[in-house]
Amino acid sequence: MSMAVTQTPKKSSRVLRYIGFVAMPLLVVVWSLIDLSLGKELVEWIPYLASGFSMNILITICAVTLGTTAGVVLGLMQLAPFWFVRLPAQIYVQIFRNAPALVLIFATTYIFPFEIVMFGNYLPFPDWVKAVIGLAILSSAYIAEITRGAVLSIPTTQWEATKGLGFSRLQALRFVILPQCVRRSLPPWMNVASSMAMGTSLASLVGVHELMHAATDASTAVRRLDFTIIAYVVVMAAFFTLCYPIARLTRRLEQRFNAG
């Protein structure tokens, strides 16, 4: 009986979940079709907004790649048997895990110079690279914790077994422990990736040309309240259609791993 009770809301909510993938873009399309003058204005601005969003995606990919690389190394350093390896990693993770993303983006933007002198050449150091570094620092601290948690979640008997088979500590890590960690840390890693994608909008506050910035530009140029509304709805729709599928997939993976 309780099965029947839990089954009914599941089915209808599944329909709602699929609607979630297309709801926001659909709203934008329907609204611009109803009010054609607004739609025409929006179509003109879409390429500009899209160029902004491509910057968001670029920052996300770079920050997550950098953050993952650094984070895995830091996570393993936290588990090292030597205190002079362990301690710096622990301090780094503790400080930056508690730092707001915005503060880190401001820090990297204002601390780094706007150009670097390299062999007598002036190389520009663009703002978006600084935002990448800021977000990478944050994600590396999160991913270090995820890596550490994943390694610790592997039963100690497996370490003992590898020792019995004559593996060194690093070999055991490389061939036995880490492959299992990849599977376990995938859902939380995807959470971090999607929150980094959302964090890229903060870069607009330091003047990076990204989607938020583009929307603000567009709404100040057009000066219509309904266009302002639809411009921000487009921003939300873009982030939502990027992050919602990731969130769904994460939940799906979590359920499957818990069952398996």
Binding site: V235, F239, A247
Partner: peptide, 14 residues
Amino acid sequence: ELTRNTPTLVQLMF
């Protein structure tokens, strides 16, 4: 779902 999957900054500006 909407609040979880859109940036806080965008929600605030909106």
